[in-house]
Design a protein around this nucleic acid. Structure first.
Lengths: 204, 204
DNA sequence: CCACAAACATACCAAGTAGTATGTTTAGAA
DNA sequence: TTCTAAACATACTACTTGGTATGTTTGTGG
């Protein structure tokens, strides 16, 4: 098979798959994984059930693809990329978080963070989704941890600071903020940013 | 009606109601609100559907009762009570959190915190449950905030510290810890406690 | 232009869902 | 004891769920 032919052959199918995943992402983001039925997904995508189950063996596999093909790239773009090669970790982590909370594409306080929501809903009950989310969040942890360690090498972060612990604390703060934001609204976001700055300053 | 007669009259019924609520609490804690069906609840409680719907108009009202009669007292006992009249807020908040994360009755990292889980699941989609959870969590916020302000009056906390903001940050940290604990396990708890101590020290 | 697999479409199903209709039991007031 | 309402029990229903069985369309390699 020529690549061109393969491309055209798969093009429409890939588009259908893409449509399903991204529409499902929106629905699941707002309503949760369990609460979003396949019937709802195919109704809003105008895709038939046959097409859905051609592309995904079952709902769980669709969820897996959603995490790996929609959520993971999104987190890489908004959480990890701003920290790559950062030479001022305290500032860069703060700015990354500020952007993430205030202008990221999926910013909506009432609905939280897609990744955090899924962790809460499926981590305890679905092993493969748990693992996929674990991979995504571990990447984020690693990005923060590395930037802290780089900061230490550059003499900008105190040596007694444990990068991995700080990274954990940042992720904890992020997920907690997204969680409390669903309850108390976006005001939480500014609170977290203020206290995060105070915390980061103290690492320098 | 005499109180005694009323007491005996309601006693058995109250027990049934209590059984339903507490068993539902366990199931919902582990599996979520939506994922816990009424059929499952009545099967594990050995209570019939007629009894269930005698005590609760519908599933939502049962959830409301669960928040107000099970979750709220639990949070009052483990989150609020340790902070009442605390004269060393930095220490007391840390100890309260340590106890809450390590020895509280509903401590199970993989399942998180019942209140936090519910916030995540229903805050965006159910207004009355949202309000009930808002009330519970606001109480917790208030307890932390008050203790910080008392600490300021006693000269133990810096005057430039905003008690309400600190309280928010504590709740954010708690919920985030419970959330990340579901993903990464109980190791998160120690990390949070360490960084919390560092944070609290800096307020004195 | 034809065979054939990829990509979809339609109809269906068994299990589960919240909730109801209609009973029966039980315990205390009179 | 008897009457009555609270407290439960049973059977049922309309609807939704994830998933399947069985088609039909579509593109493309030979």
């Amino acid at each position: 098979m020529f690549v061109g032919q393969l491309y055209y052959l798969m093009s429409k199918a890939a588009e259908t798959r893409h449509t399903i995943l991204h529409k499902a992402f929106e629905l699941i983001y707002r309503n949760g994984f369990q609460a979003t039925s396949i019937d709802t997904i195919i109704a809003t995508t105008q895709v038939t059930k046959g097409a859905f189950f051609y592309h995904f063996r079952n709902k769980e596999e669709m969820g897996l693809a959603l995490i790996n093909e929609v959520i993971k790239p999104t987190m890489e773009e908004s959480f990890i990329r701003p920290l790559i090669n950062s030479d001022q970790p305290a500032d860069d982590i703060y700015l990354m978080m500020k952007h993430l909370l205030q202008t990221a594409p999926f910013f909506q306080a009432e609905y939280g963070c897609p990744a955090v929501n899924l962790v809460n809903e499926v981590a305890a009950s679905n092993d493969s989704l748990h693992q996929a989310l674990y991979a995504v969040m571990s990447q984020c942890l690693q990005a923060v941890s590395s930037s802290i360690q780089r900061g230490q090498a550059l003499g900008q972060i105190r040596d007694d600071v444990d990068g991995a612990q700080v990274a954990n604390f940042i992720m904890i703060g992020y997920s907690g903020t997204r969680n409390m934001g669903k309850l108390f609204g976006a005001a939480c976001y500014q609170t977290y940013l203020n206290e995060l700055k105070r915390y980061l300053n103290q690492l320098t």
